[in-house]
């Protein structure tokens, strides 16, 4: 095999892993919100975008260390999650059309606010990690490896949280039977707020990292939202296993297809694949009967 082919394969694999892990972080948060509150947070992409810009702003304009900027972004966006739960999701519980409207309102405000306040040129958050790892002929940037590791470890942390802690158990209870959970005295609003904070914090993390991996635009949330929706539909909405599996598929396709195809064709092929799969498995690959 030619040297260049090997390099391409390795680079593609690493790219696929990074993209997958970031997509999964977002889709996982979205799934949390869906399972626990029965809402589809179409503004999740915009939360990701805001996370990216806060980190960028802190790291460049304010000029603090990138990692600190990341933490600040996660904290700010996490707090915003509490606000979202109280004022956006709770009033429209179970009303999908109204949720769409509120989310569009939120997207319009945030995207335009960022678009107006930012200069019109390509912006990239400074690299979090410098340096290159050399293994034989292959060289990889440390940053990619670190991003992938961050993604995986956050994923494990979140899964441990839901499966091993008392709050996690309560979350699963609320997801399975809301009224049953209320009758056990579980504070559903607290659990929902917690889910929102986790979901938003994960989105902010992914956004902050991707701001350095790719570049920032006010519309970066829209593109990633399509990816998240693809993952959810493919994996079966509400299923965490589905998110992991479909996230890997979508991330991989996203890294592989652009080698041969243009951006829009990649999108079209991906959607075609998903439509065909859904025609055979109408609930997605891991889906069950759904609420919404």
């Amino acid at each position: 095999m030619a040297e260049s082919t090997i390099l391409l394969i390795v680079a593609t694999i690493v790219n696929a892993l990074v993209l997958s892990s970031m997509y999964i972080l977002l889709a996982l948060g979205f799934t949390f919100l869906f399972n626990i509150m029965g809402i589809l947070n179409f503004a999740h992409g915009v939360i990701y975008m805001i996370g990216a810009y806060i980190c960028f702003y802190m790291a460049t304009v304010v000029g603090i260390n990138q990692w600190l900027a990341l933490l600040i972004s996660v904290a700010v966006v996490g707090l915003f999650g509490i606000f979202m739960e109280r004022f956006i999701f709770r009033p429209f519980f179970g009303n999908i059309n109204s949720i769409i409207v509120v989310c569009i309102g939120l997207i319009t405000v945030l995207v335009n606010a960022v678009a107006i306040s930012q200069p019109y040129n390509v912006q990239v958050t400074p690299a979090f990690v410098q340096g290159i790892l050399k293994v034989g002929i292959v060289s990889l940037s440390w940053q990619r490896i670190v991003f992938f590791l961050i993604g995986v470890s956050l994923l494990i942390l979140v899964l441990l949280f839901i499966n091993k802690t008392k709050q996690g158990l309560q979350m699963r209870a609320v997801a399975q039977d809301l009224e049953g959970a209320i009758l056990q005295g579980i504070n559903v609003h607290f659990v929902s707020a917690l889910a929102c904070v986790i979901a938003c914090a994960l989105a902010a993390t992914a956004g902050s990292l991707m701001g350095s991996y790719l570049s920032l635009t006010p519309y970066m949330g829209n593109d990633i939202m399509i990816k998240v929706l693809e993952i959810l539909v493919l994996g079966g909405i509400g299923s965490i296993n589905g998110v992991l599996f479909a996230g890997l598929i979508v991330g991989t396709l996203d890294a592989v297809l652009p080698i041969w195809l243009s951006g829009t064709a990649t999108q079209a092929i991906m959607m075609l694949i998903i439509i065909v799969i859904l025609l055979f498995k109408p609930q997605g690959l891991f889906g069950k009967e759904v609420r919404a």
């Binding site: 539909v233 999108q267 079209a268 439509i275 025609l279 109408p282 759904v290």
Partner: peptide
Amino acid sequence: FPFARLKAFYYAMVSLFFGVGLLQAIE
């Protein structure tokens, strides 16, 4: 006909994807 098997969210998403595809076909 094929889409009528899909429920709620899945229908919405598949029709979204179909719409994107249709537009790209036009393009």
